[in-house]
C-alpha cells in the first residue's frame, strides 16, 4: 500500500537530510506506529505520503502509483484516498460537528444525498451520534478528535495518517481514540500513526518503525515504543 525505496528528503537550505535513504514497505490493512524523537523525520515521512513535498531522491509508491512523478493536478485525487488527523484537530470553529464532517465531502464534489447518508453513519462509527449539531468548542478534546477522525474517514480512504493524534489528550481519552483507530483499521484501512506516547505503543503491540536522524533504526512487528522505556 505504501512503499518507500531509498527515499531521501533534503529541505532547501538544509545541508542535512530530514530523511536519509529510507526504505519501508507497508501492506494493505496494516497498523504501523512511527516513533522517534522530535526532528527524527516522522512528520516528513507522513508529508511525503501526502505529496506535500516531493522526495529529493528515491521512489515512493502509494496504492501502486509512484507519487513523486504524479502531475500536480492529480495530487488532489491521491489525497482523497488518504485521511489525515492531527494533534490539534483542525476543526472549523464556525461550523457544527456535522458540517465539519460534511465539508470534507462537499469540497470534493460528493452529492447531497451521499453526504446525508455518510455523515451520520460516520459520526455513529466514531461514537458521536446525537452530537452532530454541537459546535466544536462545546466538545471535549477527545470528542473533537473524534470529529477530526470522522472527517478523515468519511470518504472511506484506503489509508489513514495520524500525526500524534493523542498528543493533546489525557491517557484515558487517548485509549478511547486508539480503540477507534483500531476499529477503523479492522475495516481494512491502513493506519499510519506517528506518536510519542510510549504507553499506547506498548499496549497495542503493533508494528513499530523507529526513526532517528532521518534513518530507520528499527522496524519491528508487534514492537514496543523503545528499549529505554
Amino acid at each position: 500500500m505504501i512503499r518507500f525505496e531509498k527515499v531521501t528528503k533534503t529541505y532547501a537550505g538544509m545541508g542535512h537530510p530530514a530523511l536519509d535513504q529510507v526504505s519501508v514497505d507497508v501492506d494493505k490493512g496494516e497498523f504501523v506506529f512511527l516513533v522517534g524523537a522530535s526532528g527524527s523525520g516522522k512528520s516528513t515521512f507522513l508529508r511525503l505520503i501526502l505529496r506535500e513535498y516531493r522526495a529529493s531522491s528515491g521512489r515512493i509508491y502509494v496504492a501502486g502509483k509512484e507519487i513523486n512523478r504524479l502531475a500536480g493536478w492529480k495530487v488532489p485525487r491521491l489525497r482523497r484516498s488518504i485521511g489525515t488527523v492531527f494533534q490539534d484537530f483542525r476543526l472549523l470553529p464556525n461550523k457544527t460537528v456535522s458540517e465539519n464532517v460534511a465539508f470534507a465531502l462537499q469540497v470534493i464534489g460528493r452529492s447531497r444525498s451521499e453526504i446525508a447518508t455518510l455523515v451520520p453513519e460516520t459520526l455513529e462509527l466514531v461514537g458521536l451520534e446525537g452530537k452532530g449539531d454541537r459546535m466544536p468548542d462545546e466538545l471535549s478534546g477527545g470528542e473533537q478528535q473524534r470529529v477530526a477522525i470522522a472527517r478523515a474517514f468519511v470518504n472511506r480512504p484506503m489509508i489513514l495518517i495520524a500525526d500524534e493524534p493523542t498528543g493533546n489528550l489525557d491517557p484515558t481519552t487517548s485509549v478511547g481514540i486508539m480503540k477507534l483507530l483500531d476499529r477503523i483499521n479492522r475495516t481494512g484501512t491502513t493506519v499510519l500513526m506517528a506518536t510519542h506516547d510510549a504507553g499506547i505503543v506498548d499496549q497495542m503491540r503493533k508494528r513499530v518503525i523507529e526513526l532517528d536522524d532521518g534513518r530507520v533504526i528499527r522496524d519491528q512487528a508487534q514492537g514496543v515504543y523503545g528499549f529505554q522505556h
Binding site: W73, P76, R79, R80, T84, R90, A104, V107, I108, R151
Partner: peptide, 10 residues
C-alpha cells in the same frame, strides 16, 4: 488547509 488535505481540486 482542510480543502487541500481532503483533496479538493485547485
Amino acid at each position: 488547509g482542510i480543502m487541500r488535505l481532503v483533496g479538493a481540486s485547485t
